[in-house]
Design a protein around this nucleic acid. Structure first.
Lengths: 219, 219
DNA sequence: ACAAAAATTTAGATATGTCTAAAAATTAAT
DNA sequence: ATTAATTTTTAGACATATCTAAATTTTTGT
């Protein structure tokens, strides 16, 4: 079995690789886990010994098949727990992260299988992130951020990039939720900020920064 | 905040005091936690420094008010999680212990409050053990084991002393469940084993050892 | 291509929790 | 009441995971 800490390192590496390059640097991991590069070096050595990562000194790391399996399992558990908290225990989507960070390390095959069943096998979590299946299969997200679209495009909100409570609360306040339809009404050339119509009703302004952090698909 | 290990020590001390004497010995704790007396001594020093236990070398330990509060909170979480597993996730009563041992250490006030609400504020767990309230108030169990009663007494099963899967599965197999009515039909003098009628239907034999481990109240 | 800057690793410490073996204190027995 | 047995504690190690500071490697800039 893997320690709490090892699991967190594998998850961090997976997430850093997922969106960006194919290799992760020591510093990037240190920043993500709020620890120091020296500590990361130590742990990388340990994970490499266990064949969970591909690691050569100074050359960055990637996950082995074995390491990726562990990471995906943790992510599966994290996202199912988030779903459970929101769907069954009335948590808001900006409140679930820290608790799910703890729950994801509970070791019990049956527990997570039953949670999955109890939730009726959800495909995405409350932030629109896909939930890997028992085998670690992850559905590819085909959504892009709003900033990739053009005037008059009609889109459906499917997810968020930033998961911070501050950002999620801003979306709540602005009436932007998963599943909402938005239409790009105006694009300000100067700062790339946008005017959008939400659910054919309310017109609001969002900055380029916000637009980059909202994931959508064409309607 | 207290570490996972500290919480387990406090819970163990509480449980050892609960039924037996007013002071616990180092060896008793070591046996309960499956560790060595030397390790216990080290930890007791630490817990005493934090004012969670009353401890004088060689004289055994008891919990301070502060330590008892922590212990009761862990027990509350453990029992609520057990209830959740049985009621909502179709776990059997002999399957919940190990998972609840992990879940009880999750740190989130809101989480446990919501689980409590979701279960509609249960008073006892699947084994009939009382669930402490948010303030740590524990309802006193007035039940005794079957072995304390006499011929022709009619009783209701309210709990179990032994929580081992082996014992619980034996009860399932014998048709003995919480809430069942039993009548003492015969007491064998030689070995104190009993013949009992369950729910006015089935007559079964149970050993004195089993009788000691089933808690009941008079009907 | 070489020096300077940045990133990464190693060395040596610290903190937690565990262990074995030895020492000390308590309890039991004659 | 003194010895023997048992229990408990201390001393010294070990494993995990972390840190700071120093050393090393890689990357960048001219």
């Amino acid at each position: 079995m893997h320690s709490y800490t090892e699991e967190n390192y594998l998850k961090a590496i997976f997430k850093l690789i997922e969106h960006d390059s194919d290799v992760v640097t020591t510093n990037a991991i240190a920043e993500k886990l709020k620890t120091k590069a020296a500590s990361v070096s130590d742990m990388l050595k340990k994970l490499a010994d266990k064949k969970l990562i591909n690691y050569q000194k100074y050359q960055g790391v990637s996950l082995t098949a074995k390491g990726e399996k562990v990471a995906l399992n943790i992510i599966r558990k994290h996202r199912l727990w988030e779903m459970f908290l929101v769907e069954k225990l009335d948590f808001k989507w900006d409140e679930v992260h820290d608790v799910a960070e703890q729950l994801e390390h509970i070791k019990s095959e049956k527990l997570i299988a039953q949670i999955d069943k109890f939730l009726n096998y959800p495909k995405v979590d409350p932030h629109g992130d896909p939930i890997p299946d028992e085998k670690g299969k992850l559905q590819i997200q085909k959504s892009k951020s709003i900033s990739n679209f053009k005037l008059n495009d009609v889109l459906i909100i499917t997810g968020v990039v930033d998961h911070s409570p501050a950002f999620l609360r801003y979306l709540d306040k602005s009436g932007l939720a998963l599943g909402n339809e938005i239409k790009i009404k105006e694009i300000i050339e100067f700062d790339k900020s946008l005017q959008i119509v939400v659910n054919k009703k309310n017109t609001i302004f969002i900055s380029f920064e916000v637009a980059k952090n909202i994931l959508v698909i064409s309607k």
